[in-house]
């Protein structure tokens, strides 16, 4: 299944990525080479097959509700590009 340049734009927005028109064109053709290759999967009838989402089968991995010491705001904010007054600062939310 091919992807259109318009869809590339839509997906880029979903992924919060920006591409120039040139990049978008190149990307569209590269993605299409790959997506067309993926079509070989359509040769297999997978009706009724349970999808594998984990490489091993485990269940009920649980921990007790016991508190562990937090690292604290100072360490939490140490790597932040904008860590003012104990908060993570971000440009104002206008979408």
């Amino acid at each position: 299944m091919k992807i259109t340049k318009k869809e590339v734009g839509y997906v880029a927005h979903l992924a919060r990525l920006d591409f120039s028109e040139d990049e978008k064109g190149k990307l569209t053709s590269q993605l299409n080479t790959i997506l067309v290759y993926m079509d070989i999967l359509n040769r297999i009838d997978t009706a009724g097959i349970q999808p594998v989402t984990h490489a091993i089968s485990l269940d009920n991995v649980l921990r007790d509700d016991t508190e562990k010491k937090s690292i604290g705001a100072e360490i939490a904010l140490a790597s932040a590009p904008d860590g003012n007054m104990g908060f993570f600062g971000v440009p104002r939310v206008i979408e």
Binding site: S79, A80, P81, D82, P91, V93, I94
Partner: peptide
Amino acid sequence: VRYGFRTRDGENLLDM
């Protein structure tokens, strides 16, 4: 937001 690289010229959140 929390760590790593951030562009300096993000005008608003989406742009950033």
